[in-house]
Computed example of a mutant assay.
Amino acid sequence: MNLVRRCARPMLAAVFVTGGVDALRHPGKRTEMAAPLVSKVADLTGLPEDPELMVRANGATMALAGLMLATGRMPRVASTLLAASLIPTTVVGHPFWSEQDPQARKAHQIQFSKNLSLLGGVLLAAVDTAGKPGLTWRARNAAHAARREARLATANAKLALS
């Protein structure tokens, strides 16, 4: 792992670890804000309609995935989990579009933009292969090698028959 990744991953992960632990320990206000979304999601998916449980689960996901990213353990999986947990957190936590007070609206817009930036960071981390071939390249290369081997086998079989 190069120096940039070794430094950048823990820096990016820090906000998720601290925010996740805080959500686990003190779900309070987040529970009230999440209740409408949790109700909609519960109806669609069959998940429990318990906002406090969902806030704590989201917090646990952020904390654990943040630790995984910070330590370099399955960083692409960790980043994907962070992206998935950040989306509902941002939508529920910073609904600037429904805020009437100009000051509160501006504060929510800033936090929404910050979370959008974090989302961009974890998405970049999710596709970072650290210089190694990704799964897509490996699959294409394996298919190409299989086609080449099949052509060679066919040519060898034709030569053997003639």
Rank of each mutant, 00 (worst) to 15 (best):
Val4Ser: 14
Arg5Ala: 15
Cys7Thr: 14
Pro10Asp: 00
Gly19Trp: 08
Val21Arg: 02
Ala23Met: 08
Leu24Trp: 08
Pro27Leu: 06
Gly28Val: 02
Lys29Pro: 08
Lys29Met: 04
Pro36Tyr: 13
Val38Phe: 12
Val38Leu: 12
Ser39Leu: 10
Lys40Arg: 15
Leu44Ser: 12
Gly46Gln: 01
Glu49Gln: 15
Glu52Val: 01
Glu52Ile: 03
Val55Met: 05
Thr61Arg: 07
Thr61Trp: 06
Leu67Lys: 00
Leu69Ala: 01
Ala70Asn: 00
Ala70Glu: 06
Thr71Cys: 09
Met74Gly: 04
Pro75Tyr: 04
Arg76Thr: 06
Val77Arg: 07
Ala78Lys: 07
Thr80Gln: 04
Thr80Val: 07
Ala84Cys: 15
Val91Thr: 10
Val92Asn: 05
Val92Tyr: 01
Val92Met: 12
Phe96Tyr: 03
Trp97His: 03
Ser98Gln: 14
Pro102Gln: 03
Ala104Cys: 03
Arg105Val: 02
Arg105Leu: 07
Ile110Asn: 12
Phe112Pro: 02
Ser117Ile: 10
Ser117Arg: 09
Leu118Gly: 08
Leu118Gln: 05
Leu119Thr: 02
Gly120Cys: 00
Ala125Thr: 02
Ala126Tyr: 08
Ala126Ser: 13
Ala126Leu: 03
Ala126Pro: 09
Val127Pro: 05
Leu135Ser: 13
Thr136Asp: 13
Ala139Lys: 14
Arg140Thr: 13
Ala146Asp: 11
Ala150Thr: 03
Ala150Cys: 04
Thr154Met: 10
Ala155Arg: 00
